[in-house]
């Protein structure tokens, strides 16, 4: 059964006001196209989950989509702070924003607990740290086997996980390579999964390399074909990270009016991702074209 749909229809159907959303992808494969569609459709009061909120949530928060952020590293990677998040936290512009913070392993553990249907997941972290003092959801329990206290975190079960990947078939069997982040755990933990891909391929292509399938169609609700849908982040083998934009966002996002103007031009001002890609222009995509580094095929026979 084909689950192919447009970004507009996938977001309209699965993302509602007040939902808990996880757009995962660590530095790579960040679902900007989906985020921009959520902004265009004017969603409000979302609880946004991501290990590294990155520019994608900075933009959604600047647009007033969120009421809460669950995260483990709040920054523009390699550049500096996230100015829109700071404005929301410090000055309630454009709306107040609640923070709930973990370490990276704690966030991964929350997704694992959610995906495994466990009441909590144990990890050896947070000892001696002030983090449990400011986040009461981080607890310690005595090991029932007598080897001391162990930290636990509760499950995180997003209403929707949005995963960007290189390719999927029409049923949502999704192959992803390069950085894997916490996408598999987030997807299995979620009620609904939207997969956004650079290429839609025949099921035969997926079946030719089953070890590369990160997310099975079994848990996928919608498949959206959206080339360059992760820009300005990158997709291994398809396009490089637009580091120039990450630097430029630092300038733009410092100023509230400039941020609004950017959203006006690049999000509200375009109908969909295809228009954004067109507007970015060919030279951007030429600049971001990666080198070739093919893997050797393996014999599955």
């Amino acid at each position: 059964m084909s689950k192919l749909t447009t970004m507009h229809d996938a977001i309209a159907r699965y993302v509602h006001d007040g939902d808990t959303i996880a757009i995962e992808g660590f530095t790579a494969c960040i679902g900007f196209a989906a985020a921009h569609e959520i902004i265009r459709q004017g969603r409000r009061d979302l609880v946004l989950c991501r290990m590294t909120p990155d520019l994608v949530y900075d933009q959604m928060i600047a647009a007033g989509c969120a009421r809460k952020l669950i995260f483990s590293y709040l920054g523009n990677p390699g550049v500096g702070p996230l100015h829109a998040v700071r404005r929301a936290v410090e000055k309630s512009i454009p709306a107040p924003l609640e923070l709930e913070e973990y370490s990276h392993f704690g966030m991964v553990a929350r997704y694992i607990a959610g995906a495994y249907h466990l009441p909590f997941f144990p990890l050896r972290s947070y000892l001696g740290s002030d983090l449990p003092k400011v986040n009461p959801r981080i607890q310690f329990i005595e090991s029932p086997y007598g080897d001391g206290p162990v930290a636990v975190v509760p499950p995180l079960n997003p209403d929707v996980a949005i995963i960007h990947a290189q390719r999927a078939d029409a049923n949502g069997n999704t192959q992803l390579w390069g950085l894997l982040g916490a996408q598999k755990e987030a997807a299995f933990a979620a009620q609904h999964v939207i997969v956004v891909v650079e290429e839609v391929v025949d099921e035969e292509v997926i079946r030719s390399d089953p070890n590369r399938t990160l997310i099975p169609g079994l848990i996928v609700d919608a498949v959206v074909h959206e080339p360059y849908g992760a820009h300005p982040s990158y997709v291994q083998g398809y396009y490089d990270r637009d580091n120039d934009f990450y630097l430029r966002w630092d300038e733009i996002s410092r100023d509230e009016a400039a941020t609004r103007a950017w959203l006006e031009e690049w999000v509200y001002g375009v109908g969909d991702r295809a228009e954004y890609v067109e507007k970015m222009g060919r030279e951007t995509w030429e600049r971001l074209r990666p080198a070739q580094a093919w893997s050797r095929p393996v014999n599955y026979g």
Partner: peptide, 11 residues
């Protein structure tokens, strides 16, 4: 000043 937070540093 709000800094980035732990990332993986705590563990």
């Amino acid at each position: 000043v709000r800094l980035p937070g732990s990332g993986g540093a705590c563990e």
